[in-house]
Amino acid sequence: MTTPLQVTARLRDPVTTADHIRGPADASVTIVEYGDFQCQFCGAAYPNLHEVLRQRADTVRLVYRYFPIANVHPYAERAAETAEAAAVRGRFWEMHDWLYEHQDQLDPVHLSLGVEQVGLPPDELNAEVESRAHADRVRRDFVGGIRSGVNGTPTLFVNGVRHEGGYDLPDLLAAVDGASNA
């Protein structure tokens, strides 16, 4: 077996209807983010991605996939499974936004308050998360990311190609505009 010159830099799992997608279905640019709710770099990228979607509302959509690095971020897995429990109830993005806007409040007590603020029943979601009802879904995203060469968070793929630039607004706008014109 041969040694490849470079480790894969392309997204292997295509976007499907099972994904969490924000933005127009017919967008010419799709950003796939592999993120960890407790990762500070993901937290720093969050408002910038938001702004990209606002400024390029007709051309860009965002797909979020879970990539919790649980041994370093003890609340990341639970946060991801809670987001998935919210997704089942049609509130994924509300929960996603709350998590990134409250990264210092991801402990179970504050997380329950967040679930309530999003308008969902905390005890019910808590029970689901405790029973690991959503663990498989989170794991599936994680493994797919591993197989696509995700090596840390955030990792973005823009139209399937790994984004090697930064996560500041100008970097992100340049990346999506480049992909849009490609």
């Binding site: 077996m1 040694t3 480790v7 591993i146 197989r147 696509s148 060469g149 090596n151």
Partner: peptide, 24 residues
């Protein structure tokens, strides 16, 4: 040895190459 790969020192090579090798 069934697969080997050297990454630039500042590049985390991830694990996709490893799992491809394990699949093989």
């Amino acid at each position: 040895v069934t697969w080997s790969y050297r990454s630039p020192p500042d590049v985390n090579p991830g694990a996709d190459g490893i799992f491809d090798a394990l699949d093989q």
